[in-house]
Amino acid sequence: MIDWDRVTELREEFGDGDFQDIVTLFLDEVEAELGSLRGTTPREGLEGRLHSLKGSALNLGFTEFAARCQAGESLAASGAAQQVDLAAICTAYDRCKSQFLSGVPGS
């Protein structure tokens, strides 16, 4: 669910203070984006939005969430945006966030 090596790498690269800022920014931006995606019909721009979420997720080590975003991005790219399971994407994010926050001191 979480790539802990990536988390450690980020923390070492930026230091504890900046790492916490990165985490806060990531969580705020992802939650805002997911909130705007819920219930959107038609799903115009979904491919690009999921691509962006995937990249952000990979940067912070949220591998399960990134994989769900990738699957949705692929569906949207093939013209099947209505088949993207946004609830599953949100659930994956919630699980990753929970595991992340319980595993990272000071988060």
Rank of each mutant, 00 (worst) to 15 (best):
R95C: 05
T40D: 12
G55W: 01
V7I: 15
V7N: 01
L46F: 11
A32H: 05
E13T: 02
S56R: 05
Q99E: 14
F100P: 10
T8Y: 07
D85S: 08
R95Q: 12
E73T: 11
C90K: 07
S56E: 02
L86S: 07
I2A: 09
P105M: 07
G103E: 11
L86H: 08
R11F: 06
S74G: 02
V104N: 05
G61P: 05
F100M: 09
D18M: 00
A77E: 15
E29S: 11
H51L: 03
I89Y: 11
R11T: 04
E47P: 03
S36N: 05
M1A: 15
T41K: 12
F65L: 09
G35K: 13
D18Q: 00
G39N: 10
Y93A: 11
L46N: 06
A80F: 08
D85V: 10
F100I: 10
A66Q: 05
P105W: 02
S36T: 13
S107R: 06
L53C: 06
D21Y: 04
D16E: 15
G103K: 12
G15T: 10
F100T: 07
Y93H: 09
K97D: 04
E12T: 12
L34K: 06
C96H: 08
R38F: 07
G48I: 05
P42I: 14
E47A: 15
L27E: 08
D3S: 01
Q83C: 04
Q70Y: 09
L75S: 06
A67D: 15
N59M: 10
V104S: 10
G72A: 10
Q70R: 15
A80T: 04
F26D: 08
K54T: 00
G61K: 05
I22D: 04
C69N: 00
P105H: 11
L25Y: 07
R38D: 12
S56M: 07
A88Q: 13
Y93M: 08
D16V: 02
E44S: 14
L101Q: 14
R95I: 08
L27P: 01
G17V: 10
R68W: 04
Y93G: 06
V30C: 07
G45Y: 11
D3E: 03
G48Y: 11
M1L: 13
W4C: 08
A57W: 05
D3P: 01
A88R: 13
V104M: 15
L37D: 03
T63P: 00
L75F: 03
R43Q: 15
S52N: 06
S74W: 01
I2L: 13
A67M: 08
L58K: 11
